[in-house]
Structures are given as C-alpha cells and as structure tokens.
C-alpha cells in the first residue's frame, strides 16, 4: 500500500519538475538559443545623389545610373573582392542598347553585386520604353534582376506588360532588351485591343 503511495508521489514530483524546467529554463539553456547577432556589415562608402555613366568595349554609351543614396560594403577591409556589394535607394537606370529607343528602369530599392555585373531591384519596379511615335511600353513587377552589360533582365514574380494596344500578365519573365524580345514563362493572360 505504502509502495503505491511512494510511486504516485514520485510521479507527481517528476511532473512538477518537468513543468518548472519547461516554463523557466535555467539561464545557461537560454544563452545557447539567443546567440549574439553577427554585427551587420558597416558601409565603407556612402554617396548621395550619385550618378554614374558606363561605356561598352567600343566606347559607346552603355547605361547611366542614378540613386538617391548609395552605400558600398567591402567585406574584407584590406582588399576588394567579388563579395563586395552596393545597396541603393531610388535607383534609376537608362540602358542605351538602342540610342533612339533606350530602356528606362526605376525601383524603390536595389543592390549591385559581382562588381556591378548583377543588379537586383525591388519595390515598384517599372521598366519602360518610348517608341518613335511617342508610344510608351511599360513593364511592372515587384522584383527584377538585371545584367546591364548584357542588356538582359529577368524575374520569377508576376509581371504586367502594358503597351499601346495590348495588356499582358504572366508569372516569370526573361527580357532580352537588346533584341526587344520578352519571354513570358507561365500563366499568360493577354488582351489585344481591336482595330
């Protein structure tokens, strides 16, 4: 009879111990979970209202770039590397593959990587072109990945293309700006206005 009582009391004691540990674990348990955050990178250079102009191998104007604020991050203070990156706010680019008909691109935020060969843009991304008759073709999305030197852009997000006479929606896009050719990757819905 006494043995029964002993085992019940032991069971209750163990349960209480478990609950107490669960509710307020000793400090050393907590310290493992809350690792100190690695200090965020510190911008090595900050520019305001920066404007840059880039030329291609033959010296022709390739693209211009403006941004309200540009913050450059050099990972290793002693030497530059491909991992360095640049963040910017309100980026605005003009891609001059066809001087008569350039592509304009703007967004809220952006980041340049791999020595500027890759530019990511996000937040109300708009890319547009104005043809010889003044008609505007516009492309909008939430995220765009650009390779300025190759005049190429892509996204895996929903995209809307508005031109005079048609409206097209899709998910995912590859734009070969030099050839004015756009591939829409899935769920395409188009509206073409009548004559």
């Amino acid at each position: 009879m006494i043995r029964n009582w002993l085992s019940i009391t032991a069971l209750i004691a163990l349960t209480l111990l478990f609950i107490t540990l669960w509710e307020s674990p000793p400090a050393q348990f907590r310290r493992e979970q809350a690792q100190p955050q690695k200090p965020a990178h510190i911008a090595t250079t900050v520019l305001h209202d920066a404007k840059s102009t880039s030329f291609d191998a033959e010296g022709k104007l390739a693209y211009t770039f403006n941004a309200e604020e540009t913050r450059h991050f050099q990972i290793n203070p002693k030497k530059q590397s491909g991992k360095d990156y640049t963040e910017f706010t309100s980026p605005y680019m003009v891609l001059h593959h066809d001087p008569a008909n350039p592509w304009y691109v703007q967004a809220k935020q952006g980041k340049a990587k791999k020595n500027g060969t890759i530019v990511e843009l996000w937040g109300d991304v708009i890319a547009w072109q104005i043809d010889a008759n003044g008609k505007r073709s516009e492309l909008t999305t939430t995220y765009l990945r650009l390779k300025p030197e190759q005049q190429y852009a892509e996204t895996d997000k929903p995209v809307m293309i508005d031109t005079a006479g048609s409206k097209t929606r899709a998910v995912g896009m590859k734009a070969f700006l030099q050839q004015d050719r756009i591939e829409l990757l899935s769920r395409v819905r188009g509206i073409h206005e009548p004559i």
Binding site: Q129, Q179, R181, I182, L185, S186, V188, R189, G190, P194
Partner: peptide, 24 residues
C-alpha cells in the same frame, strides 16, 4: 466581333516588340 478586344490565355508567350509579333 471584330470590334471586340481579343482575350487570350496560354502557358507561355514571347513578345517581339520590333517585329510586332506575339507568340502564345
């Protein structure tokens, strides 16, 4: 009919602005 907009759906598409051709 010919005065109505054209509505079109497809799996993928390709637009060539220069040639004025869209392939669905």
């Amino acid at each position: 009919d010919r005065d109505q907009p054209i509505y079109i759906e497809s799996d993928s598409a390709e637009r060539n602005e220069k040639d004025g051709i869209t392939i669905y």
